[in-house]
Amino acid sequence: MTALLTDSTVAQPTVVAPPPLRRSRGPLHYVKRAPVALVVVLLLVIEIYPLFWMFMNSLKSSQEFISSPSWWLPAEWHWENYAVAWEAGNLATTVRNSMLATVPSLLLIVLLGVAAGFALEVMVWKGRNAVLLTVLAGIMVPGQMILLPLFTIYYNIHLTGTLWPLIITYVGHGLPLTIFMMATYFRAIPREIFEASTIDGASIIRSFFSIGFPMVRNAVVTVALVQFFLIWNDLLFAITFANRKELNTVQAGLLSFSGEYGQLDYGPLFAAICITMGGILALYLFLNQRIMQGLAAGAVKG
């Protein structure tokens, strides 16, 4: 925000002069811009063409894959590929599983992470730096390092066969980054605000819920978005802890669908990929600016 403001205030005085200058440049100006235009067009083709190609191929019959080049448009639009993909790819189940794993994980991560960030940043106590460092170290630990013990634990307490192992793992694995991000956001809020609210008779727990939490509402959305994509797109934990067909998440299901179905008939496979991307695209169309800012913020802080 501040960058934009300074930007426009600095640019304003010069704005008066350039227009005639630019006009006088005329055709030369466009020649100079040509390489830029070329780069932009190339960029657009590289980004969009694979997606367009995939969508077109999702509408072809199996005959067409043999008889004509893949870059041809479909002769007839076979929308039934989507129905086949939905049925054979078990998509109703995998989407449900992904949601059942993601939503509770997100709620728990946000609730626990924001509370812990508050306790570690706003509250004053001995040893909080040591605890904060211990939690931060967790950001660097790869999933492989906790995979086998967790698998053993879940097996021994008979949680395999449910989605609980996924939810528990996602929450624990997602907490370090969440706590770190929340602690940074709380650092910007003066402690006096919370002290003042407790003078009015509210306990500190109460002022956390009625003042602290609402004040970082925007940060909570950012954190939740970052975690949503990490969890929704996870493959390692999903294929380890939920490897039965009825527990497959979207990613695991898509992988096994391509294994058993993708060699025979490409149309439905392309359709399944399109469906998977379509859901994310819908979300992205509404929230793209937030998502971009959020993920970048998560990276800089991590």
Partner: peptide, 26 residues
């Protein structure tokens, strides 16, 4: 007020417990 041990335990306890069980112990 900001050093209230009971409040710290309530706010930090659950997250720390999950973190310990899912990350540190494994």
């Amino acid at each position: 007020v900001l050093g209230d041990r009971r409040a710290i335990a309530i706010l930090l306890g659950p997250a720390l417990l999950v973190y310990t069980l899912v990350m540190l112990v494994p």
